[in-house]
Design a binder for these strands. Structure first.
Lengths: 109, 109
DNA sequence: TGGTTATATAACCGTCAAGGCATAAAGAGG
DNA sequence: CCTCTTTATGCCTTGACGGTTATATAACCA
């Protein structure tokens, strides 16, 4: 149960997620080929990602297919949301209207 | 020059940023009191945060005031953006679309 | 059965960071 | 100059993590 930010601190794991995004899932061997990492290394990272809920695994004839579970990233986005308003325009703040816990003052009209 | 995700992997550092947000800057002693951490610990974390550009320091009579530099978080938001569309509503996607089309330098008044 | 492919796991190692303690540095005031 | 306050830094220990190598497990095929 490592926390999400720790899991995403590793660049190889972020590369795995980036590679998984935009596909309907990849076999471990495909990830190994795409990233140029060793197979045990990839398997270890996938285990961490699976424990964090960031990927899901489905058995298949020729191996195990891993697919992205992007909802698990919401926790990071939630943390980031109160900060995002600092650099986005008011129009972009539309995306933040859900957030009621923003501790800094709203800009005066 | 540690990467941003590694810097933010530490919960104490995220708490420091959360505390700094919503104020115009705090003295080290105020952060120590607010967070219940030891003073050397806070100073070390502040050094890491300053190196990453996440906080800025200004000398003052009674100490040094640290203020948040939220722009440094954009790199994390940029990484997160392609994932955000997976779970956000269409309204939020509008904000993302504008993010990707409008130049970021000068928000329109 | 034996062999091949795909994936996971175990064992080991080097590195690195976090936290605690003690102390140094810097500035203000008496 | 001395002292008090505030902050930074140095040293040390400990624990966690990433990467590699070797091996185990499982499925499939000849």
């Amino acid at each position: 149960m490592p926390d999400l930010f720790t899991v995403l601190a590793d660049p190889s794991r972020r590369r795995i997620l980036d590679t998984l995004r935009g596909s309907e899932g990849l076999l471990v061997k495909e990830l190994v080929a795409a990233l140029g990492l060793t197979q045990p290394n990839v398997s270890k990272h996938l285990r961490v990602l699976r424990t964090a809920g960031l990927v899901a695994e489905t058995a298949e004839r020729q191996g195990r297919r891993y697919r992205l579970r992007p909802e698990a990233l919401r926790e990071m986005d939630d943390w980031l949301r109160p900060y995002r308003v600092f650099w986005t325009s008011r129009l972009d703040d539309l995306g933040d209207y859900l957030d009621s816990t923003r501790p800094h003052e709203r800009p005066q009209p």
